[in-house]
């Protein structure tokens, strides 16, 4: 019997392992109703299932104004120490301002821990030359960049472009957001096998059967991060997906937080 079966089925929060959500957001969004999108409601939902910490990039910074997004991120991580950590959002259409934001956020706040890039929403290709200063900054500081990647249909940040840039900047630790989308797993593991600086995150709305098992089998659990997309997506489904997966307890612990803790001081 799976160790977590009863806990998940009785709705008891997971408390025997730390859970760090490496892919979360904050706030409302233009094309959907999100009932629980405030910091307080996010924490309430995290507590209900046992998520300890989340790295956030506010939605306003993704589809609208990235500086406002970073302001909200900074304010939120100060208000909720030990629960929220920051992802500094950059936008390739504003190369000078993006550099200012990186300087500002990483200097101001020790709990800003990664960079967030959303090529599809900014419509700036990941390999656009305007992104180079950002990548030089990340290389110099050996930072993680979390990139939204989504199948071949995304001309701005698909997995091929992701792989090309990740190869060009080996000092950056690249997180392939959503592992390339629901049907991107084959290519995701192919890229991760070739590039040791590539990490996968499991945040996704469409969850093919046995996807966690597949990723672990192909590349091991050491480069897979737990992520939820909260509050775009409810964080609760991801708990069942990992807890009830047919992988070892060690693999679950790696995914839930050990991998993140290996590289980032939370």
């Amino acid at each position: 019997m799976n160790r977590y079966f009863d806990r998940v089925h009785k709705g008891i929060p997971i408390d025997d392992v730390e859970i760090i959500d490496m892919h979360a957001h904050l706030g409302p969004y233009y094309n959907m109703h999100i009932p629980d999108c405030s910091a307080e409601s996010m924490i309430k939902n995290m507590d209900l299932c046992g998520i300890d910490k989340a790295v956030i990039s506010p939605n306003i910074g993704l589809s609208s104004d990235f500086v406002s997004g970073n302001n909200l991120m900074l304010q939120t991580i100060k208000s909720y120490r030990q629960r929220f950590y920051g992802a500094c959002i950059v936008n390739g259409n504003y190369p000078v301002l993006s550099m200012r934001e990186l300087d500002r956020c990483f200097k101001l706040e020790k709990d800003v821990v990664i960079i967030k890039l959303h090529p599809a929403l900014t419509r700036c290709k990941m390999n656009d030359k305007r992104m180079k200063p950002v990548y030089r900054f990340a290389s110099e500081h050996k930072l993680f960049i979390l990139v939204h990647t989504w199948l071949d249909e995304d001309p701005y940040g698909n997995q091929d472009i992701f792989a090309e840039v990740a190869k060009e900047y080996p000092d950056i630790k690249w997180i392939m957001g959503h592992s390339g989308g629901p049907y991107g797993s084959y290519k995701a593991v192919e890229i991760a096998k070739k590039l040791p600086n590539v990490f996968l995150d499991i945040a996704i709305s469409m969850r093919p059967a046995r996807q966690i098992e597949f990723l672990v089998k192909e590349i091991g659990s050491e480069r897979i991060f737990f992520g939820t997309d909260n509050p775009f997506l409810d964080p609760r489904p991801q708990i069942g997906r990992v807890c009830l997966a047919d992988i070892s307890q060690k693999d679950k612990e790696n995914i839930f937080s050990k991998n993140a803790r290996k590289y980032i001081e939370f």
Partner: peptide, 11 residues
């Protein structure tokens, strides 16, 4: 997977 819908509801 059915595991996600299960924990969506149980939690």
């Amino acid at each position: 997977t059915g595991t996600s819908a299960v924990s969506l509801l149980t939690y």
